[in-house]
Amino acid sequence: MENTKKTAVITGAASGLGLAMANAFAEEGYQLVLADINETGLEKVKNTLGENVITSRVDVSNYEQVEGLINLAVGQFGSVDVMINNAGIGPRNLVPVAEYSFKDWDDVIAVNQTGVFYGMKAALIQMLKQGQGNIINVASLAGLKASPNNISYAASKFAVVGMTKSAAMEYGRKKIRINAICPGYSHSALLDKMFKFKPELEDGLKNLIPFRRYGEASEIADAAIWLASDKSSYMTGQCLTLDGGLSL
């Protein structure tokens, strides 16, 4: 266990990858500030993890709420050592661009792209005061390669990759590292939703992956632990791809 009394803020922590990260960082001894729009889910997570965990209902597309989340972490624990911008959604319908709804575009961009910008901005303001910090953005394989019938999600995740690299250049001299994780197809609510919409994809996609299986949320969480640790201390502006070889 590397950490003692460091604080990690995780958005989208009530389920999926965010929940796996919350469990992993708790095991590493972090003080946790967990956010999600799902209050019921957050309460269950808090009851499971116990001490040194506070939760807050946050809509990441609202800057005042994100800023309040950072202030809550500082007020409770004194610092924000690790900020994980994980909250994300997918579109309601997987369709070609000409058929894509404005609502799916606006909603996905608001959470996945603008929400990450807000999370970075609020965390960076605090980290500059501290003189150090570590930001981990959750992008996607869809931010590195084409994702047909999914234009808003692809656009948002490509944006996360670009924002990560740009901000990493700006703050490297300030002792603030900023990296991204790009999961491939991993067990999550988003993947389940896609298979519900198009069940025929489940076996077909798996056969495209050299490992012939989908990723586990715990495997993505392990990558976040590494990025948050001193073992990756010379790494910034990078996108760590965990996809079972699919991008090959």
Rank of each mutant, 00 (worst) to 15 (best):
residue 86 N to A: 02
residue 150 N to Y: 03
residue 2 E to I: 15
residue 52 N to L: 08
residue 145 K to I: 10
residue 212 R to D: 14
residue 238 Q to H: 13
residue 125 I to C: 09
residue 152 S to C: 04
residue 51 E to V: 15
residue 61 S to G: 03
residue 113 Q to N: 07
residue 205 L to F: 02
residue 81 D to S: 06
residue 76 Q to I: 02
residue 100 Y to A: 11
residue 173 R to L: 05
residue 194 M to T: 07
residue 207 N to Q: 11
residue 220 I to Y: 02
residue 218 S to L: 05
residue 162 G to V: 05
residue 101 S to L: 02
residue 151 I to T: 04
residue 127 M to P: 12
residue 56 S to D: 00
residue 220 I to T: 10
residue 70 I to P: 01
residue 182 C to K: 15
residue 205 L to H: 00
residue 168 A to T: 05
residue 111 V to T: 12
residue 157 K to E: 11
residue 104 D to A: 04
residue 179 N to S: 11
residue 208 L to P: 00
residue 224 A to R: 00
residue 232 S to R: 12
residue 141 L to H: 02
residue 186 S to R: 09
residue 188 S to W: 00
residue 172 G to M: 10
residue 18 G to M: 04
residue 68 G to L: 04
residue 76 Q to K: 15
residue 218 S to H: 07
residue 204 G to K: 05
residue 58 V to I: 09
residue 72 L to A: 13
residue 8 A to H: 09
residue 112 N to L: 00
residue 154 A to F: 06
residue 219 E to Y: 09
residue 171 Y to L: 03
residue 136 I to L: 06
residue 114 T to S: 09
residue 119 G to C: 07
residue 234 Y to H: 03
residue 223 A to K: 00
residue 179 N to I: 05
residue 67 E to H: 07
residue 41 G to T: 10
residue 130 Q to M: 14
residue 151 I to A: 09
residue 105 W to P: 10
residue 37 I to Y: 09
residue 18 G to D: 14
residue 231 K to D: 07
residue 142 A to E: 03
residue 90 G to V: 15
residue 138 V to T: 12
residue 146 A to K: 11
residue 207 N to C: 04
residue 1 M to A: 15
residue 126 Q to S: 14
residue 23 N to M: 01
residue 23 N to S: 00
residue 239 C to D: 15
residue 110 A to P: 05
residue 220 I to A: 13
residue 128 L to W: 03
residue 10 I to Q: 02
residue 137 N to E: 13
residue 110 A to R: 10
residue 53 V to S: 00
residue 17 L to W: 08
residue 118 Y to S: 02
residue 145 K to W: 08
residue 24 A to K: 11
residue 57 R to P: 03
residue 126 Q to K: 15
residue 62 N to Q: 05
residue 193 K to V: 00
residue 106 D to W: 13
